[in-house]
Design a binder for these strands. Sequence first.
RNA 1: GCGCCCGUAGCGCAGCUGGAUAGCGCGUCAGACUCCGACUCUGAAGGCCGCAGGUUCGACUCCUGUCGGGCGUACCA
Length: 572
Amino acid sequence: MMTDFRQAAAALLAEHVEGLSEAEILALMETPPERNMGDYAFPCFRLAKSMRKAPNLIAAELAEKLSGGALFPRIEAKAAYVNFFLSQECLMQEVLAAVLREGEAFGRSELGKGKKVIVEYSSPNIAKPFHIGHIRTTLIGNALYKIYDHLGYETIRINHLGDYGTQFGKMIVAYRLWGCEEDVKREPIKTLLGYYTKFHEEAEEHPELEDQARAAFTALEHGAEEETALWNWFREESLKEFRRVYDILRIDFDSYAGESFYSDKMQRVLDELSAKGLLEESQGAQIVDLSEYKMPPALITKSDGSTLYITRDIAAAIYRKEHYDFDKCIYVVGTQQNLHFQQWIKILELLGYGWAQDCVHVGFGMVALEEGTMSTRHGRVVFLEDVLNRAVEKTREVILEKGVNTDNVDVTCRQVGIGAVIFNELSNSRLKDYVFSWDKVLNFDGETGPYVQYTHARAGSVLRNAGDAAGRALAAERWDCSYLRDDSAVELGWLLYRFPAVIVEAAEKYEPSLLARHVVDLAQSFNRFYHNEHILVENEAEKEAKLALTAAAKQAIRNGLTLLGMEVPERM
RNA sequence: GCGCCCGUAGCGCAGCUGGAUAGCGCGUCAGACUCCGACUCUGAAGGCCGCAGGUUCGACUCCUGUCGGGCGUACCA
């Protein structure tokens, strides 16, 4: 572990500041807007009232009294701030030693040791296309899983398949009416989707189809033979297709227990709800009234007795707590379902489950198409697999145009193309809606996956060209950091120093984009360093210091991208 | 109607638990490959941070209102 410099500065201040604890000082410490103003700053505004003195006077007095020793050779007042200048030598030595010693474990921690976290993500509906609407939950969930794993948590990945509900009643009815076994076998999802679309068209003129669909689902729920067989078949065929996409993305799950898995665990929910006096009948349906909490009522069962989404989610939560005994259960599901999750968590609380507060809904904004909202019913979808394939093709075009530096073009195209899609998705904050654009996913310039991967490959190339010096740089315990004084090098040192903290922050905020952005910063910084400074110089001490920084940047970029779920080619 | 989310340069986005001159990418314009990989780098132009109040020594950041967009709001998930 590296020294916490911020805390060191706060400790120094604590000796001379009255009325504030070290922890409070630490909380107030900030980073100056520009490096030439120092590395840490303490604003004195807060002290002005109690000390009855102007903040800039207080700052000046504090700066006068403080002595930072080797760690902070300069401590100066500027306006109302006390600015701490960290010894670049200390910073660089620590950072290089930490990154090069820890290697791919750099950024790892024991924060989650002994704790178990469930991440539920992806969760597509069977018999429906795996489209770009699913990309966010799939990639955000996967990245969160990797990040939590890196922080020492025991993780369980659950793909809560949408494999239950009235929609399957519709599918069953449609198949009986228009189904063809060979067609389904040949192209399962597209064929089934066709039936589904046709069902909705027909149902507009023949509303009785809807009733038939509800009846079919109820039959399925009661284990009727024909319905169950059809449903099983649809599920298997769908999973085959989903797995193809997961394989491309190198995503895996520990459990595919979808909604249907809880079908036999629903009665218990109903019993518990009614034992607590929460269940009421209303218009033939069973509901939980939540008006006291300013929410609409939650429908637990429909008037025909079949269950609903929220009932299954309650059953799932209880099952998971009892089966896995999680410390945290993360649901990566779109913000459209905010109300659903609020109702659901409230009901768990009302049932007396204190662990409800360990369940967290990680929402994200919608993906729309340029021509409007996606709609499977209207066939307005972009298949995720198509996006991935086109990204790979595009990479091939770029490689053909610019030349290759790799032994296996196919592998590299896949790594870069898929990486581009993943990085593009994960570099924006999750809450914002966005419009899917082919131009944007297929653009490889600027803040993109290929840019970061390229930077990594380039750093690798420098290290290869360095010959023995690279080995010496890596094996060393100290480096002559006086050669790493260029702004770009200093900046790079800081970004490397902050890397572990960024991973923690990304986990705390369930926001992989923080990590993605940090990796871009690292890449930009390294590219600047590369251009400003010649690395492979004659002077051995200088060369080794620069190679150490190069190797450290490469390692951090690699670790960051790996945590986002990307592959990181050595050459491209 | 009510609830939640979003509104920052032409476009796409950052902006740390309020703090010192609001940043990055794309695009545009002007530059840099006899030199470690130009999928790179440097510079310029481009902003009343949706609008109006309020809290504060200080507001892109917090509160209220308002406008614009998205989503949700009982038998879909």
